[in-house]
Design a protein around this nucleic acid. Structure first.
Lengths: 371, 371
DNA sequence: TTAAAATTTGAATCACCCG
DNA sequence: GCGGGTGATTCAAATTTTA
């Protein structure tokens, strides 16, 4: 499945592969403005002091790997500054980034994102339904992690599949707090000894929501701290291309095997609920041109308080106002704006019918006979 | 109720009073190592641009007060550095601080806390049960704010009333995410015109949990951004002493009146703080995200007459229909409504199993570990 | 008087295309 | 790049009004 396509000038993107080595060097080897989304789960700089034991004296298998050790905040900040700089260079102008962390590192990442000109869109809380309890009763159960979602710069046109996320949430808009279980059971990858292959493997459900919400099929997703490849696996399932970067050979090996066993969902399943904004624009005048409404015909406001006349050029005229369906509606309601399509009705057989019904008819025809 | 006690050397603490003026000057006028807990709700530096209207065209009453305006991140950082420095000087060696903020400012506060040698104990997420929605469908509903709880330094013996919090949480240890409603109704203070007295009044339930958890009766609690005095009111109710600092005379006036009407150990108010637990809603999309059902998988109607496919966003697609599990079921049966949970089954080992079984599984998980 | 329906409101970095 | 026109967009809870 490895591919080298979507070349940008002289350099091609190593799509659907895992690069080895230092993530900053690897990122700098890729062409600028070439990535749609970055998901980054960097070392958390945990600063654990000594071992932690449960009440039964069993030892907690803490994250004490060498890669998570930084000598100081300054060292961690330098690392953060460098990889975020490399990441920003890679992003397309309308690309975006997600970073995930805990209170140990997320404030430093968030501040650095802002310092570099990234524009924060949301912070999203992953609320774990089954976190590890606080065994000593000295603090609150650490039951969440924080993600930051940011565009490359202020004003960028980031991807946000609002309707798809709303559908995922059964018709209510998605909030900034996501309740999802941690990665356990069959999904949790094991090494040859049967121990967990990676200490902080993220659940696929988390990446599913991130990728459905902020990418489209065919987008290129980069994960500079690939680990055992959750980002790549979910990207592949969802029909996105991925690039992983991972320093540790053991993690790369587990990820390669995982990806080989991952299958893309079928095409139909990848279609998601689309926004109305994606529908083709229909000028109101077309209803008049097509004879669906006649010049001189009356339109009635949704609240029944206003009556206006259609003119031959597709504008409306009322007692003291004329203009487009939107302008006249806004003026009559004293509102800053008005969607004329849903505001006005015409009379058919004595009954009021919203003019939006006529727009639907035209759109249906367009779908049948494109052009 | 004003008192001047607990003198420290030559300087006495102005207990249970509201100091006027700039919070940094006021803090510097107080004796060092004298405060048990600081709760700080500083300006968030929202940087709002134009107006925002709801879909019904009503205008959102934005937080555009002069006190929330900063010229740059650098200016905001300088402000943060200065007040956190002054605050740290005031704290007793075993004292602690809480700060609250949103993604606009909380990362900068968190980083500065760490830089100054404060030791972060938890970040706590206030999940709002009734947040303002995202009206334009451009981002996730901003449904939470973040609090950081930190001791004066690493190794300090901070106060944590584990058992009291566990009791507040129906016998389960308190987690780092708190579901509480925003401040509305009778609790929301009004000015002479009947408008809200302060744009960002915090709910007493939030402060109740903070003060029960991290102070003891008789402790001195300082709030350098006192506003309309929620911290003071809850402190008084709980038998803690408070010191407030507030720049705006209008807020001080409202707070003084509020405090005069507040009584210690107000049973009724304590009841209010107990949060209601609602029946958990499980969106169908979560079954897809969690991998319990896979995009592309078939669902079968209870009568065996219909077969549809699951999509990645948790909607269904049939021959000529798509939508939620409920919408598609209703359409296929020609019914006005349909409970998709009981209407659809999936196949497991060749046998049809109602999807409601999967919902029961998730509900069971949630019931095991409530909140 | 009571229940139901309608209205109000909340720390918000909240369009996009075309000429 | 700028200005103007089109037209898409909300959830929970408290309060007020209507039936």
């Amino acid at each position: 499945m490895k591919t080298m396509t979507k070349s940008k000038g002289a350099t091609a993107l190593p799509l659907n592969t895992i690069l080895s080595g230092d993530c900053i060097d690897a990122m700098n080897s890729l062409p600028e403005n070439s990535i749609d989304l970055i998901f980054a789960d960097p070392p958390y700089n945990l600063q654990l002091k000594g071992d932690l034991h449960r009440p039964d004296n069993s030892k907690v298998d803490a994250v004490d790997d060498e890669w998570d050790q930084f000598s100081s905040f300054a060292a961690y900040d330098k690392f953060t500054r460098e990889w975020l700089t490399a990441a920003r260079r890679l992003l397309k102008p309308n690309g975006a980034i997600w970073v995930i962390g805990s209170y140990h590192n997320v404030f430093r990442m968030g501040a650095e994102l802002q310092n570099q000109g990234y524009w924060i869109l949301n912070d999203v809380v992953w609320r774990k339904s089954n976190p590890m309890p606080n065994f000593r009763g000295k603090r609150f159960t650490n039951a969440h992690e924080t993600m930051i979602w940011a565009s490359k710069s202020e004003g960028a046109k980031y991807t946000f599949n609002y309707e798809a996320l709303k559908a995922l949430n059964e018709g209510v808009q998605m909030r900034s707090d996501w309740v999802l279980p941690i990665c356990t059971g069959h999904e949790r990858l094991k090494d040859e000894n049967g121990d967990k292959a990676h200490p902080t493997q993220k659940p696929e459900s988390l990446l599913h929501r991130v990728l459905v919400g902020s990418t489209n099929p065919g987008d290129v997703v980069l994960d500079p701290f690939f680990g055992t490849g959750t980002t790549g696996a979910v990207a592949k399932m969802l029909g996105r291309d991925f690039i992983g970067i991972e320093r540790e050979a053991a993690y790369r090996k587990v990820a390669e095997k995982r990806l080989a066993n991952t299958r893309k969902f079928d095409r139909e399943a990848l279609q998601v609920s689309a926004s109305k904004r994606a529908e083709p624009r229909v000028p109101f005048g077309q209803l008049v041109e097509r004879g669906m409404l006649r010049p001189g015909e009356n339109l009635y406001s949704i609240n029944g308080r206003h009556k206006v006349k259609v003119r031959a050029d597709g504008t409306l005229i009322g007692d003291d106002v004329k203009g487009s369906i939107h302008q006249v509606g806004a003026h009559l309601e004293g509102a800053p704006s008005c969607n004329g399509w849903t505001y006005w009705s015409y009379k058919q057989d004595g009954k009021k019918v919203p003019i939006d019904v006529l727009r639907q008819q035209i759109r249906a025809e367009m779908a049948e006979r494109p052009n």
